[in-house]
Design a binder for these strands. Structure first.
Length: 495
RNA sequence: GCACGGAUAGCAAAGCUUGGCCAUGCCGGGGAUUGCAAAUCCUCUUACCUGGGUUCAAAUCCCAGUCCGUGCUCCA
């Protein structure tokens, strides 16, 4: 079953093949590090984390490059507003970026180049573009001349050059920029007083936004690579600008075999923006929501669809996550000791319930793989996991003796680790999951009090004094503790 | 205006490329279990924007229309 991916340039799902057998080169546009990451960043980098994980699981050796834009108008504005050196702003936000991504269980890319490290390469590309007649020096910088390569226009957005041409003339003069044409974009910006600058053949200045990605992808991968990713909003102008720059510079096309763009996140039906006051940073959200629950909520939609984030969505994710974890935890507890034991051959047609359940699980695992192969359809993959969890619950209750039970527990553990764990990335580590109450400082603080109340409640229950027992449970609820009665006695957890 | 995408049950959201079976979860109804809960399990109801067409068969393909989002300026 071949992997198929949706390519923005061709506007359809196409079979995936790589430039070099068994290897995937992937470049994803990173963040401009002027502030903390928000929900939209989480969605984007989780989407490409899934791509990363699935390609690796499919046997590819993936080289993943994601840049940091560490010089830009926004960073300069921040610096002027706060008086803080721009380098400190950059350094701090890069560290915070790693923290946010780690907490969301996003695997690291192989390289995180920063654009300020590539200024020389950018200057080299710009010089070449000028020489080839694709760029010109204006009064306030260097611009790419889009009309020099009209056949490359609209490759990702389908916009025609004629349509955009209309009304362009007047606006060029209005902006006061040195552009000859409205469509042209800046490659190099002449320095304004007080801004960070670099030397160049065109005097002191700094690079335009788009040129950095051309320089960095060229440096890591050469003239072309397999996957170029980023947010939906980057298709135009950023990615189209990259196509102009790189392809005109190297003379090779296409720049990228597949262009992948993730959908946006809306909040309660509205676009997330600071002016609407619905701007959620990752660190804000994980104050209240388990980061893996957030990850599930985001993975529980196809990466190209827009997501409307709201309370309901997080509640659903919370519930489903708890269900998956509960099954995983029981499997872990039952599988911790003992050796592997032979399980029956999976067979959906079997009259033996163990063999039949194993057969169903095999089919669900295949369905999971098919879903991921179909343009990384994580939504469908989540559905398979949830259906699998139901079967795993059944499985864990089967088994005639302890050996059997341990064997099915091992199977259940591995089934979940290979799907929900390794690919979806929504399972916590066993250490965290199996932590005893005393391992959690918040629990340790109240453990003694809770245990005393539980002991008292057990006595009341033994005496069938239900009023007293329920009153104690109310008391525990007030402490933020949830009590669950099981076969082995009551267990408790924080809300 | 131009471009791109979307419309599926009370809600969220897969499926559409390759027409025929089934999503999945929440909510609601019924049941099992429980002292009562929680969790879990079983079970039921409610769909494919509108109008045409093709076909033995259409959520899926074709034509026309309606409505909605996003981009065209910095953005994941």
């Amino acid at each position: 079953m071949p992997l198929r991916v949706h390519d923005t340039r061709r506007r359809e799902k196409v079979e995936f093949s790589t430039l070099s057998p068994g290897r995937v080169s992937m470049y994803v546009c990173g963040v401009t590090v002027y502030d903390r990451c928000h929900l939209g960043h989480a969605r984007c980098y989780i989407a490409f984390d899934l791509v990363h994980r699935w390609l690796e699981a499919s046997g590819y050796d993936v080289e993943y490059v994601q840049n940091f834009t560490d010089i830009d108008d926004k960073i300069i504005i921040r610096s002027i507003e706060s008086g803080e050196d721009w380098r400190e702003i950059v350094e701090r936000n890069i560290q915070l970026y790693y923290e946010d991504m780690d907490v969301l269980n996003i695997l690291r890319a192989d390289h995180y180049p920063r654009c300020t490290q590539y200024v020389d390469s950018m200057i080299h590309i710009i010089e070449d573009l000028i020489q080839k007649g694709h760029a010109y020096v204006g009064k306030d910088g260097v611009y790419f001349h889009v009309d020099s390569a009209p056949e490359k226009y609209g490759q990702l957005t389908g916009q025609s050059i004629d349509a955009v041409r209309k009304g362009a003339g007047g606006r060029v003069d209005e902006t006061g920029s040195g552009k000859k044409d409205h469509k042209d974009f800046a490659l190099w910006k002449q320095a304004k007083p007080g801004e960070p600058t670099w030397d160049s053949p065109w005097g002191q200045g700094r690079p335009g936004w788009h040129i950095e990605c051309s320089a960095m992808s060229l440096d890591h991968f050469g003239t072309s690579f397999d996957i170029h990713g980023g947010g939906h909003d980057l298709r135009f102008p950023h990615h189209e600008a990259e196509i102009f720059q790189s392809e005109c510079h190297t003379g090779h096309a296409p720049l990228a075999g597949y262009w992948l763009h993730n959908g946006f996140v809306n909040i309660d039906g509205e676009k997330m923006s600071k002016s609407l006051g619905n701007f959620w940073t990752i660190s804000d959200i994980v104050q209240n929501v388990d980061p893996l629950v957030l990850r599930l909520a985001l993975v529980n939609a196809h990466y190209r669809s827009p997501i409307d984030m709201n309370e309901q969505l997080l509640n659903d994710a919370q519930r489903n996550h708890a269900r998956i974890l509960q099954t995983y935890e029981s499997a872990l507890r039952m599988a911790t000791s003992g050796r592997r034991h032979q399980l029956p051959q999976p067979d959906m047609e079997s009259s033996d319930s163990l063999a039949k359940t194993l057969g169903l699980l095999e089919r669900l695992a295949e369905g999971f793989a098919q879903a991921m192969d179909d343009d990384f359809n994580s939504r469908e993959a989540v559905a398979k996991v949830l259906a699998g969890v139901k079967q795993l619950q059944t499985l864990l209750s089967l088994g005639t003796d302890d050996e059997d039970k341990r064997a099915v527990a091992h199977y259940a553990k591995e089934w979940l680790e290979e799907t929900a764990g390794a690919i979806l990335g929504i399972l916590p580590s066993p250490d965290v999951l199996l932590a005893e109450p005393e391992d959690d400082p918040r629990k340790a603080e109240i453990a003694e009090e809770v245990e005393a109340l539980l002991a008292e409640r057990s006595i009341a229950r033994a005496n069938k004094d239900w009023t007293r027992a329920d009153a104690i449970r109310e008391q525990l609820n007030a402490l933020g503790v949830v009590v669950t009665d099981t076969e082995d006695g009551p267990v408790w957890d924080l809300v």
